[in-house]
């Protein structure tokens, strides 16, 4: 396909051995925000799509679907991960925490409150991922300085440019611990 003119179909190797069959699925039980759930899913389903399209938990966002933006960040067994690159079928027995699971009833998580206090968001789309990632960052102890927070939060892009205030919010919440 090098050079200017191309004819013919796009390049695809021989494939499709499994075409026209029901795609393989699996049964998986996992805990999401403290609630045990059992579902049968297409093996291809990402944790992000499981949350969004099957469980109606749309707080976690799909910004790139490739691990390059962090909008989908959730905690799996306490560690922050990109849910878009996590196959849900692998999560048998896992504990997942999403943005919807951080507040205790009406009481916001200290980092959620800090985001409000610092005006650490504009459009709000990356915010759930930023907050969950920030919770992970604080748990990991990477909040020793503004510079450290910035580096360890760099897996979460914000296009509105709220970084300065997000850093302050993480600092605020870390200080409260």
């Amino acid at each position: 396909m090098v050079g200017g003119v191309v004819t013919g179909p796009p390049v695809h190797a021989a494939e499709d051995a499994v075409a026209a069959e029901v795609p393989p699925g699996s049964r998986v039980s996992l805990t999401v925000n403290g609630v045990r759930r059992t579902v049968t899913i297409d093996n291809r389903t990402s944790l992000l799509d499981l949350l969004r399209e099957h469980f109606g938990l749309t707080g976690s966002k799909k910004g790139c679907n490739a691990g390059a933006c962090g909008a989908c960040t959730v905690l799996v067994d306490g560690r922050r991960v990109n849910s878009c690159l996590t196959l849900a079928v692998r999560l048998e027995g896992a504990e997942v925490t999403t943005i919807e699971g951080l507040a205790k009833g009406d009481r916001l998580h200290p980092l959620q409150q800090a985001f409000i206090d610092q005006d650490a968001f504009q459009c709000g789309f990356c915010t759930p991922g930023q907050i969950v990632s920030g919770v992970g960052c604080i748990q990991e102890g990477h909040t020793g300085s503004a510079e450290e927070i910035r580096e360890w939060m760099s897996g979460n892009l914000c296009r509105c440019g709220c970084y300065v205030k997000i850093e302050r919010a993480v600092e605020q919440a870390a200080g409260r611990k």
């Binding site: 707080g59 999403t98 943005i99 916001l108 409150q113 985001f115 409000i116 206090d117 709000g124 915010t127």
Partner: peptide, 12 residues
């Protein structure tokens, strides 16, 4: 502060 802040920080 933003009037819709709570919705945005809770994923709602």
């Amino acid at each position: 502060p933003r009037v819709d802040a709570r919705l945005r920080v809770t994923g709602q």
